[in-house]
Amino acid sequence: MRQALLKFKQWMTTALNGLLILAVALLVLDVVWGVFTRYVMGEQANWTEELARFLLVWVSLLGGAVAFGQKSHLGVDYFVEKLHPEIRKLMAVVAHLLVLFFAVSIFLIGGWQVVSDALILEQTTPALGIKMGHVYLALPIAGVFMALFTLENIIEVLGAPTAYRNQVSAEGGAE
């Protein structure tokens, strides 16, 4: 079971990293084209700034989910490492449950509500003419990844209490 979860997480992270690489590459090309059209052609293409803004939102949200999945997020483990080893496991689970609540309530439920409202109202972007609901999809997608990564972290903490205590102690936590 654990191997299947690890394989699934690796697949998700690889797919998300591929999507991020594509988005960053498009962002760079878009900004370069915008600079080129402004300084060489005399007038910036009107869609480049809007596309750059939307791509930056997607890269930020999905990049945050990847960082969280790779445990590069400082907010979850910093305070846990400062606690006594007996309390670390409980506090780690509490912290992950708070993150899970935030990811589900704000990113998934709230994000999906924003996407639905924008699609129902048929809001479109001024320069690109795409539906704003598609732009806002970054919220629930990032929420799904954050929720899955958080569930994996909770399973890891609960499944290996001794290894978790030793791992945190080895990383410099208070004894």
Score class of each variant (00 low, 15 high):
A23Q: 06
S169E: 15
I154A: 06
R2V: 08
L100M: 11
M12Y: 12
G129D: 08
V157A: 02
W47K: 09
W47T: 10
Y164R: 10
N17V: 11
L90S: 13
K9C: 00
I120V: 14
L148W: 07
A147E: 05
K71V: 03
H73M: 08
A127V: 06
T13D: 14
K71F: 11
I21H: 04
A95V: 10
N17T: 13
V66P: 03
A65G: 02
L61I: 05
G133E: 04
R38M: 01
D30P: 07
I120C: 00
A103V: 06
Q167P: 00
T125C: 03
A174Q: 12
D117N: 13
V28E: 04
F107C: 04
L16H: 10
E152R: 07
Y164W: 15
P126W: 13
K7V: 06
D30F: 07
H96P: 00
L137W: 05
F79A: 06
L5H: 11
Y136H: 07
V32Y: 09
A23D: 02
W58V: 00
N17F: 09
E43K: 14
F145C: 06
K82I: 07
R2K: 10
I141K: 00
G143Q: 05
G34L: 07
Q167Y: 15
S60C: 07
V32Q: 04
R165I: 12
A52C: 07
V168K: 11
A65C: 03
I109E: 03
G64F: 05
